[in-house]
Every structure is written in structure tokens, then in C-alpha cells.
């Protein structure tokens, strides 16, 4: 652990805004104070993963319409919790990875890779073909799937 790392963490911790993508339908849940609030799951990108039960900030007139796949901005409250505060114009997307190796005096680029994923509802066709050989009926309509940057299916996403 270096001072630089500690500073990086501090900078990361002090971030007060992020963008994410809605990856679930909206639902109601009871927060710590026992209040029923509207919330959804938000995908924060490759490294941060999916943040569950993110409430929609109250009295936000900007947020008129948001469904799955929409980019939203998240703001951090004083107590450290994140809330959805508006619609974002940018959307987290795919990441190019370039793997390099370094020796004493030289470096080289070993390979490049496209990473990233999207979460979306499974199509009718996918509902029928993903769970071989059972076909339709195993996966409920509306089940969410996670797909890599090339569009290959990765996994079913658990939803609340």
C-alpha cells in the first residue's frame, strides 16, 4: 500500500456523482427508515458491477421517464448512500483492454481485448433456447440476461 493508493481511494470515495445504466424494472422497497421508496438496480460499469436497490431521489422533477437501459446519474448523499438524481446523456459502454509487458529496457503490446457487457431482457427466442433441452417455461418472461461486448450470452441476472 502506498500513499498514492491511499490518495486514489480517497479520491474514489469522495466522488459525488456517477453514471450508470438501469438494469431492472422499478420496484418499491422499504428503506432503513421503514419508508416505501421507488428503486431499481443500476449497473455502474465493468469494475463496479450492479448496485442494487438504488432509490430515486425525492422531489426530482428532472426524472420524468426512465426505464431499463436508460443512463442515469447517481449522486451521493451525506450519509454515503447513492440515489438516482437524473437522466444522463452518456452511458457506460465497452472497454478496450491493451495488455502490455515490461522488461528492463523494453516493452511490448501483447494483445488487445474488448470487454464490457450489457444487461437486457431475454427475447422470446432466448427464453426458449437458453435452457436446453427444456425450452419455454423454465425462464420467466422478463428474465434479464447479461451479454458480453460481442453479444455473447454470459449469465442470467438475478432480479428482485
Amino acid at each position: 500500500m502506498s500513499i498514492r493508493q491511499i490518495i486514489d481511494w480517497a479520491i474514489e470515495d469522495s466522488r459525488s456523482q456517477m453514471t450508470g445504466t438501469i438494469v431492472s424494472p422499478f420496484y418499491e422497497y422499504s428503506d432503513y427508515g421503514g419508508h416505501w421508496v421507488w428503486a431499481c438496480d443500476v449497473d455502474l460499469g465493468e469494475n463496479l458491477g450492479v448496485l442494487r436497490c438504488v432509490p430515486v431521489a425525492a422531489n426530482n422533477r428532472e426524472l420524468i421517464y426512465a426505464e431499463q437501459g436508460r443512463a442515469v446519474t447517481l449522486s451521493r448523499l451525506n450519509n454515503g448512500k447513492w440515489v438516482i438524481t437524473g437522466l444522463a446523456k452518456s452511458l457506460n459502454s465497452t472497454v478496450h483492454y491493451i495488455f502490455m509487458s515490461f522488461t528492463d529496457d523494453t516493452y511490448q503490446v501483447l494483445r488487445k481485448q474488448l470487454r464490457g457487457y450489457i444487461i437486457r431482457p431475454l427475447t422470446y427466442g432466448e427464453l426458449g433456447t437458453l435452457v436446453v433441452p427444456y425450452g419455454y417455461g423454465v425462464l420467466p418472461y422478463g428474465a434479464q440476461g447479461k451479454f458480453d461486448a460481442e453479444g455473447n450470452f454470459l449469465e442470467i441476472v438475478e432480479t428482485y
Binding site: 453514471t19 443512463a71 444522463a88 446523456k89 452518456s90 452511458l91 457506460n92 459502454s93 465497452t94 472497454v95 478496450h96 483492454y97 491493451i98 502490455m100
Partner: peptide, 9 residues
């Protein structure tokens, strides 16, 4: 939307 993209070395 303008997609926010990343390149990582």
C-alpha cells in the same frame, strides 16, 4: 446517447 468509452492499458 453518447457512450462513455474506455481504453485501458
Amino acid at each position: 446517447a453518447y457512450l462513455e468509452k474506455k481504453s485501458v492499458a
